[in-house]
């Protein structure tokens, strides 16, 4: 199937000051490649600091000014340059940000969802209807529309962000740690919504550190380590002792789950060692 999003050999570095005025480039992502096809939930798992969120920001064009990007990003078969990104962002590509602090604290939730719908190109007179429909799809009653973000619980705020990202019928949805800070019940709810969207033909890129729960909804899993993609495996390969996983790091990650072996390696391995084990 044709890939919706294709990230190929993406590298990213930041200019940082060493000393007062000298600067050098700090590499953050190196040779990151993955594809998302319509109808799948593609999970990206890895340690915090491995660069998962940076990849999401790179795809959405949200990197700060001192970032330098190389490699190719294709969306729907065409290169995703700054101009095309500006036209598609919010319409065809949408992001569910990691922090619920992304909600404007001074604006009622319903209005923020209407803004997103407007951004996605929906006619102004239709946005109230669309906003109400989207919020109710995620089990949020009409009083949530009138509520300010601080009066919402973490789970509800997360669903408002989900509603904002899906109000415009985007083809690709990037969910950056959408379950952080949620209790098991709300976590499963959010993951199930993502699954539903994928079943409706959307492509979902699910960024998370939580391998265990990502596996319940994902079709494929890409493992991130120290700024690069180690391997992409179908989720049913995470089974037993992980015999069908090719990389030792992926296997170790699987075996470290408390519900499996809870095994920790003897000590932290450097990235070079992880690669040389392959």
């Amino acid at each position: 199937m044709k890939a919706l999003l294709a990230v190929d050999a993406l590298s990213l570095s930041f200019q940082r000051y060493s000393g007062w005025f000298r600067r050098h480039a700090v590499p953050c992502l190196n040779d990151v490649s993955l594809t998302v096809v319509p109808g799948e939930v593609h999970a990206v798992v890895g340690a915090s600091g491995a660069g998962k969120s940076l990849m999401a920001w790179a795809v959405m064009g949200l990197l700060p000014a001192n970032a330098h990007l190389s490699g190719t990003l294709n969306f729907d078969g065409l290169p995703l340059d700054a101009e095309r990104l500006a036209a598609l962002r919010g319409k065809c590509l949408a992001l569910i940000p990691q922090s619920i602090a992304a909600l404007d604290p001074l604006v009622r939730s319903g209005r923020q969802v209407r803004w997103s719908a407007r951004r996605a190109g929906i006619a102004a007179h239709r946005t109230p209807h669309i906003a109400r429909q989207t919020l109710s799809r995620y089990g949020l009653a009409t009083d949530v529309e009138q509520a300010y973000p601080h009066t919402l619980s973490g789970g509800m705020a997360r669903r408002v962000l989900l509603a904002m990202a899906t109000a415009g019928d985007a083809d690709l949805l990037i969910a950056d740690e959408p379950t952080t800070g949620l209790d098991p019940c709300n976590r499963q709810r959010v993951l199930d919504y993502l699954r539903e969207l994928a079943d409706a033909g959307k492509g979902i890129l699910l960024i998370t550190h939580d391998l265990q729960h990502a596996l319940t909804v994902a079709n494929r899993v890409t493992v991130f380590h120290a700024g690069t993609t180690l391997e992409t495996a179908p989720s049913d390969a995470f089974d037993g002792q992980g015999e069908r996983l090719t990389m030792p790091y992926t296997r170790a990650l699987w075996q470290a789950l408390p519900s499996n072996g809870f095994q920790a390696p003897a000590r932290e391995r450097t990235h070079e060692e992880v690669l040389s084990l392959a």
Binding site: S13, R23, H24, A25, P27, H68, S70
Partner: peptide, 10 residues
């Protein structure tokens, strides 16, 4: 394209 390590004042 920027060189990977620069020490120039820009």
């Amino acid at each position: 394209m920027m060189p990977s390590v620069t020490a120039t004042l820009r």
